[in-house]
Simulated scan of single mutants.
Amino acid sequence: MATITGKKVGPIGYGLMNLTWREEPIPDPQAFAAMKAALSAGCNFWNAGVFYGSPEANSLQLLKRYFTQYPEDADNVVLSVKGGNVPGKMAISGAPQNLRRSIDECLGLLDGSKSIDIFEMARQDAETPLQESIETIAKYVKEGKIGGIGISEVTAQQIRANAALHPIAAVEVELSIQSPDILDNGVVETCNELNIPVVAYSPLGRGLLTASIKNLDDLDPNDIRRQLPRFKSENLGKNARMGTELQAIAKAKGCSPAQVAIAWARSWSKKPGMPLIIPIPGSTTEQRASENGQQISLSDQELSEIEELRKSTAVVGGRYPAGH
């Protein structure tokens, strides 16, 4: 197992976004069962966000309830929390006063039930000098209120700029068979050079790689994914094809397409010149959390098949709408 902020982490993590970022949050008994299953499977790197869900039902409130009921799990979980958002807006501000407000809010919502091992700004703020933002968060590290600093959705140049100011505990970026950008844009090379682990979010392509989404009817009317370019009606059918093709590889291996997709993301950690990569799939049920936590290994032949699939199957639409 690798170590982050002094704590050991497993090779697969767990993302909490799907539990709360929906019109009706997952009921606590179901959410708790999924979280327990993830931890039992060794997925002890948990990723949350103060803006995952509504102000009345967000992931930190869920975590407080979970760790209040299961206090024995708190020390076994490495918790990374995204914040820095402007209240009431889908915008990020790295201004010191906003960061202090955000970190204090996160700590208040957890209310001592669990420490924050990593705090990360969800995006870089071009309007605030980076040094001011990092110094603000670093003060909380020095005071022992948080364990370390993480950064999210960053370029190789931004990683270097952040790391020059303070040790960076982890870099959270998207990585999946459908979104392999960080393998070619210098991000993984930079993280490897600076010995920074990569936390790979959306390793299942937001569900497109599970073969469970074929058209818009497979999504709830208020599903946030409907706002993303790859899930628009004119693109979804084409993008779902990769999941269908992946299903054939998974069937031959005797596992699920999701397990293949997660194993593909993990496989890059084993290659020369690559940093530790921890995929953080999200799941809303105990069964799926246990399934995603299984460590499947892919043969060179299977990896070659996936690479051919990646090259031959076009992905239509960007990861986010313009401006995000």
Rank of each mutant, 00 (worst) to 15 (best):
I116C: 02
A95W: 02
I277F: 01
K253A: 09
G42F: 07
M121G: 09
K311T: 03
I168P: 08
N195Y: 08
A258I: 09
A33Q: 10
V77R: 06
V316F: 01
E193V: 11
W21V: 09
K142T: 11
E135L: 11
N58W: 07
P25H: 12
R241H: 07
L194W: 06
N185S: 11
K7C: 08
R319N: 05
V173G: 12
E105A: 15
A265K: 11
P279R: 01
H166R: 01
S40N: 15
I103G: 04
M274E: 05
Y70N: 14
R22H: 06
N98G: 04
R266G: 03
P279K: 07
I278N: 04
I159K: 13
G108T: 01
A258F: 08
G83Y: 02
I4G: 12
V50Y: 10
E291K: 09
E193I: 09
A37I: 08
A122N: 03
A74H: 10
S267I: 06
R22C: 04
D111S: 14
N76K: 15
C43H: 04
S312Y: 04
T68E: 14
Q287F: 12
A248T: 15
Q227S: 14
I116G: 05
R100N: 07
S212T: 14
Q259N: 03
I277C: 02
E23P: 09
P279S: 01
E302N: 03
A322H: 10
A263N: 07
A200G: 02
T284V: 13
E234G: 02
E305I: 09
I159R: 11
D75H: 15
T284R: 15
S40E: 15
I159V: 13
E132L: 11
K251H: 14
A289N: 08
A156L: 14
A95V: 03
K271M: 10
S113I: 11
K89S: 13
K82L: 03
A156P: 09
V199H: 05
V9W: 00
T68Q: 14
I182P: 08
M35A: 12
A48G: 00
I12H: 06
G144N: 07
E127Q: 15
P279Y: 02
R65E: 15
A211Y: 04
S256K: 13
P279F: 03
V316H: 02
E305H: 07
H166M: 06
T155Y: 08
W268F: 15
L19C: 01
T155H: 11
R206V: 00
R160G: 15
D117K: 10
P96W: 05
D104V: 00
L99Y: 03
A2G: 05
L309S: 04
A126I: 13
A265F: 02
R288T: 09
L110G: 09
V260A: 01
A314T: 12
V187I: 14
E24V: 14
K311Y: 07
L216K: 06
K36P: 05
Q61I: 14
I224N: 15
M35I: 12
N239Y: 00
Q287R: 10
E153K: 03
K82A: 03
W46M: 14
E307A: 11
S115Y: 14
F119V: 06
